[in-house]
Design a protein around this nucleic acid. Sequence first.
DNA 1: ATTTATTTTTAGACAAGTCTAAAAATTTTA
DNA 2: TAAAATTTTTAGACTTGTCTAAAAATAAAT
Lengths: 216, 216
Amino acid sequence: MNTLAEENYLKAIYHLSLSDANVSTNQIAAALNTKAASVTDMLKKLADKELINYEKYQGVTLTAAGEKIALQIIRKHRLWEYFLVEKLNFKWDEVHEMAEEMEHISSVELIDRLDKFMDYPKHDPHGDPIPDRDGNFKKHELKPIASLAVNEGGIISGVRDHSATFLQYLEKQQLTIGKKITVTEIIDYDHSMILQVEQTTIHISREVAKNLLVAI
Amino acid sequence: MNTLAEENYLKAIYHLSLSDANVSTNQIAAALNTKAASVTDMLKKLADKELINYEKYQGVTLTAAGEKIALQIIRKHRLWEYFLVEKLNFKWDEVHEMAEEMEHISSVELIDRLDKFMDYPKHDPHGDPIPDRDGNFKKHELKPIASLAVNEGGIISGVRDHSATFLQYLEKQQLTIGKKITVTEIIDYDHSMILQVEQTTIHISREVAKNLLVAI
DNA sequence: ATTTATTTTTAGACAAGTCTAAAAATTTTA
DNA sequence: TAAAATTTTTAGACTTGTCTAAAAATAAAT
Ligand SMILES: [Mn+2]
Ligand SMILES: [Mn+2]
Ligand SMILES: [Mn+2]
Ligand SMILES: [Mn+2]
């Protein structure tokens, strides 16, 4: 099929194209912790395979075939993360690196059976949607808490930053997926916010508020 | 740690050294479907890392460090095979190729939790023992059915040939792990054997009898 | 509209792993 | 025990994926 490196490039391009339709060489290099020259080399290979649309200096987009592969890898990544948390009792900040390896296990039958074994979960431990075998998923409409006004609220349903440190912080503050929150006050000076989370009151910085997503 | 290729070489050397203490270049090449020249190159690298004892033209043995790595990989292979059969309902002839990929997932914590999740199985779906986290396992004393005399018998506990065709044949004949068999007749002409397996009588060739193992 | 800065691509090199063909060592056979 | 057959190693080449340094193209600033 495709090599491990190719799969990682396609996945990175997919994620980057959610913010910018056209993805630049430097963006990919940063995402994959590699150098721009290496990216250019790989882009030529992926273009030869018709997995991306690439014209020199113009950035890239995924073709339908490339996007399909990217979504299969994301499906596998998120299903394995769900498995690690729900079946093996890992914490949500511990699973990403393992899933980075497991997402490359090739068998489609395996991942479909894993999906069934876990009763077709719709979201991974970080709230991200899990594509079905055909790559379909409904993208949830989430807003950062930072965009809410006083007295507005919602259900915590996702994060914008997946780093272990951020996830651990949220865990400690009990700001986990499924919790209902309401904004009770916004501090003028630094735009930090005071939230009501069930019985308790929590004060979060604007930085945190921008990276924590709620469904209204 | 070690590359995927290195892990595959160490595992192959381990398996081969069960029949021959000293493993030859050609044996490894055959096992890994590669060429003798490629094997020589890799043997130098593994010797540099002190994972094997290697002297030109003399064949190789694993060092303690090399054997430890090989046993970790075998542990992972067999635990994943058990998972695929017991949790995802694959058949015993379907799991080997998937496990060949999964055995390279690196996390030790993951495999220890998987082990616990499945309640510490002692044998994989083919009857092979699963090493514990320290690489320890008790090697079962099994005999090929071909070595039995009339009226002798035992419990089917392993196979010498792991090919899908052989496993499928056994499945169809109900000659699966755990079944009690007794030899009722041995045909002089071709050394084929007639077995009593629970209520039924089954006639197997010498070829089959040599590859099917029983605990007495 | 040039100059300057940034981004991207090319050129050339390197490591890992593999291959074929040929040479060297070992084993077998006569 | 010397010739023949087999096994193993070396030599040289190729692919994939990466890198640094330098050139080319694009974007930003004067
Ligand atoms: Mn992840
Ligand atoms: Mn995730
Ligand atoms: Mn196997
Ligand atoms: Mn097995």
